[in-house]
Design a protein around this nucleic acid. Structure first.
Lengths: 152, 152
DNA sequence: GTAAAAAATATGAAATTTCATATAATATGA
DNA sequence: TCATATTATATGAAATTTCATATTTTTTAC
C-alpha cells in the first residue's frame, strides 16, 4: 500500500473512507479466507450471530450487498451446512435464515477473532484517535443514512 | 438504509468503515453512473486527473483493485476514447495510461462534482466532526498502511 | 556477461455479480 | 371483495471479476 499520487484523490473523503475500509479489513479478510469463508459469507455469519433468523433482504442490507446476490450466497452456505432456510409462519413471502450448529460454532469463533483483531488495530492508534474513531464513525454513518434517505 | 440488528456488527470497526464508505459514496456513485461511467472508471479518471501517465499497476493500487481487472478496465476506457496506452521509454514492461482530450474534460468535470458533493456531505456534520473527519481518517489510513506492510 | 529473480502487463477459464424480471404472498383501498 | 400495489425471494443471461499463469522486459547477483 502506497500513497496516492496527487492532491485530489489522497484527501478526498470518499477515497479516505474506501481506502481505510480496505486497509482495515485487509488482514482480517485474509484470515477469513484461511478459515474457508468468503467475505460475504463471513458477513452473513456475523449478522446471524447478532440475530438469528434474519430475512434474505435484511441480510443483504446489513451486509451491504444486493438481494439477488445474497440469495445465492445463502444457497451456497446452505449447501455447506452453515445455515438453513425456514419459512416464516405468518408471512409466506419471507424466508428466515438460521445458523446450523456448525454455523453457530463457526460464527462465534470468527466473531471472537474479529474482536481480537479490532483491539489490535485500535491499539496501533494514538489514544485520542482510538477513543474517538468508533463514536465518530457512528455519527457519520447516522448522518449519511438520514441524508441518503431524504434523497430516495 | 437501516440499523443493523445486534450488538456486535453495529459497533464493529470494520463494519462502521465499510458502511460509512458505502453510505458516503452511494449518491455520488449514482451520479457517476448517470454520467455514463462505472465506479472503477471514475476512479481511474480521478487518479489520472491527479497524475496523468500512471502505470496499470499504480492505477490498480490507488483504485483499490486487482491488476488484471484494471487491465480490462483500461481496455474498455481506451475503446471508449477516454484514455490511451503509451509505452514507457526506458522500461519496456511499463504501460503508461494517459487521458485523451475527452477523458481530460470528463475527469475535470467529475472531479468538480465530487468536490461539491464532498462539501455537501461535510456540511451535514456538526462542526467538530466536519473539521476532524479527514485528518483523522488520514492518520488512520497511515497507521493501517504501515501496520499492513509489516504483515506482508 | 549470464543465469535467476523480479516486475509489469495480459489473458483463458471458472466463478461471481449484476440487471431485469418472474413468481408468489400480502397489503391497500375503492 | 376485488383489483392493484407492494414486498420478498428467486432466476436466466449477460457482464464482470478472480485466479492462476504466460509473456516480456528489467534487475540482481554471481
Amino acid at each position: 500500500m502506497t500513497q496516492t499520487p496527487g492532491k485530489f484523490v489522497s484527501s478526498y473523503l470518499l477515497y479516505l473512507l474506501a481506502a481505510s475500509s480496505e486497509a482495515a479489513s485487509h488482514q482480517f479478510h485474509i484470515r477469513v479466507r484461511e478459515l474457508g469463508l468468503r467475505v460475504p459469507e463471513w458477513r452473513v455469519l456475523a449478522c446471524l450471530y447478532d440475530q438469528d433468523g434474519l430475512m434474505i433482504t435484511q441480510l443483504a442490507r446489513y451486509s451491504l450487498m444486493e438481494q439477488s446476490r445474497m440469495t445465492r450466497i445463502v444457497d451456497q452456505m446452505e449447501k455447506r451446512g452453515l445455515v438453513v432456510r425456514k419459512n416464516d409462519e405468518g408471512d409466506g413471502r419471507r424466508v428466515r435464515v438460521h445458523l446450523t450448529d456448525t454455523g453457530q460454532k463457526l460464527s462465534s469463533d470468527v466473531v471472537e477473532e474479529a474482536m481480537e483483531h479490532e483491539r489490535t488495530l485500535l491499539s496501533a492508534l494514538n489514544q485520542a484517535d482510538a477513543d474517538r474513531i468508533k463514536p465518530s464513525l457512528e455519527r457519520l454513518l447516522a448522518s449519511l443514512n438520514s441524508w441518503n434517505s431524504t434523497k430516495e
